[in-house]
């Protein structure tokens, strides 16, 4: 399945969080935040991960970076930096890497957080924040480090004299730029962008989206773009995975997913997004009820209680994540027989 230009491969990834109760804090249940997820991300692409709150998208992002230890499964990363002279890249399992290898891998994989207010240390100057990775990894020091920071700030659209200022002096959009400059400092191959624009005002969101696209072209970056906003994910991604209750329900190239959805949840999600056009009259598919609790998910297909196509088999048997051909994957018993509604073009 994985072709030559794959940068990262996630195999059977699971992350279960224990639920503890009582004085003895006994484990009474598990939240299956990520439940057997397979995906690969190709070099230079933007891979969108979309889903509603609690679907496990953030947990996947953090497990890939090993900010959270997975319960099971592997994350294979092809590092150029760790390769010796005779290889193109070195395959490393992030989940089993030693602390030394892990530190080296941190230069290859970086993250941009959602909240630009809490992810910057208020007591550090912008120069110190952006320059810290260079110091920690011994990449540059002294005036060379300052030059690098100046260059990085320029790349994200800030001014060199912003170096001496503190985060509180900046607006939300500018702070997000600072976070992006910090992520770029070590020249990573992969950036996990976890809801990078959802805390920003509408007029600022487009600025940051365009910046991310420009930086991708300039530095050849690969993005894992995590978001709940389907319009944004469609805009920026080459391929998109839709998650529901810890599982990928559908994965395809962006145009394919929106023109030819195969999972009823994808269909409902697309039809639920309010379109900014008063004459857009496509009828919304209204899903019944709420997302079930991941502590006690439904039997069979997790989506069946809300699915308008559900049949008997969906209640009893868990559908497998399967390949439909091309780069289209789906987790649905009925995918072959359903004729689902694509996004209507306005």
């Amino acid at each position: 399945m994985a072709s030559d230009n794959v940068l990262l491969e996630v195999k059977n990834l699971k992350k279960y969080f224990p639920v503890r109760k009582g004085i003895l804090r006994r484990v009474v249940a598990h939240v299956k935040a990520v439940d057997d997820v397979d995906l690969y991300i190709k070099e230079g692409e933007t891979f969108g991960l979309v889903g509603e709150s609690g679907c496990g998208k953030t947990t996947i992002g953090r497990t890939i970076l090993r900010l959270i230890e997975p319960t099971a499964g592997g994350v294979i990363f092809r590092s150029k930096r760790l390769a010796n002279s005779s290889e193109q890249y070195r395959e490393v399992d992030v989940t089993a890497a030693s602390p030394k290898v892990m530190k080296a891998l941190r230069r290859d994989m970086q993250i941009i957080f959602q909240d630009p207010y809490s992810s910057l240390n208020p007591r550090m100057t912008v120069g110190a924040i952006v320059g810290e990775p260079l110091l920690v990894h011994g990449v540059a020091r002294g005036s060379e480090r300052e030059d690098r920071v100046r260059h990085l700030l320029g790349a994200v659209g800030l001014k060199p004299d912003h170096m001496k200022r503190y985060p509180h002096e900046f607006s939300g959009g500018q702070r997000q730029r600072i976070g992006i400059a910090r992520a770029l400092a070590l020249e990573p191959q992969l950036i996990v962008a976890d809801e990078p624009i959802s805390a920003l005002d509408v007029s600022i969101q487009a600025q940051v989206l365009n910046l991310l696209e420009d930086l991708q072209d300039e530095f050849g970056l690969t993005y894992l773009f995590i978001a709940h906003n389907l319009s944004v994910v469609k805009h920026i991604s080459d391929r998109v995975a839709v998650m529901y209750l810890g599982r990928i329900v559908e994965l395809a190239r962006t145009e394919e997913l929106f023109d030819n959805p195969k999972h009823p949840y994808t269909e409902a999600l697309m039809s639920a997004v309010p379109v900014p056009d008063p004459d857009y009259s496509a009828e919304r598919i209204i899903l019944k009820g709420d997302v079930p609790s991941p502590v006690n998910p439904p039997s069979g297909c997790y989506f069946h209680p809300r699915c308008r196509y559900a049949r008997e088999v969906c209640k009893t048997e868990t559908p497998v994540y399967r390949h439909l051909g091309g780069e289209h994957f789906v987790t649905c018993h009925l995918a072959d027989s359903l004729n689902l509604r694509p996004v209507r073009k306005g």
Partner: peptide
């Protein structure tokens, strides 16, 4: 006009967004 051109829409083809420059 700036607000309209700076949001991606599900119903339109992918194109580069035209943001509003600067901040409030």
């Amino acid at each position: 006009q700036g607000l309209m051109s700076s949001i991606p829409s599900l119903a339109t083809k992918r194109h580069r967004l035209v943001p509003i420059e600067g901040v409030v």
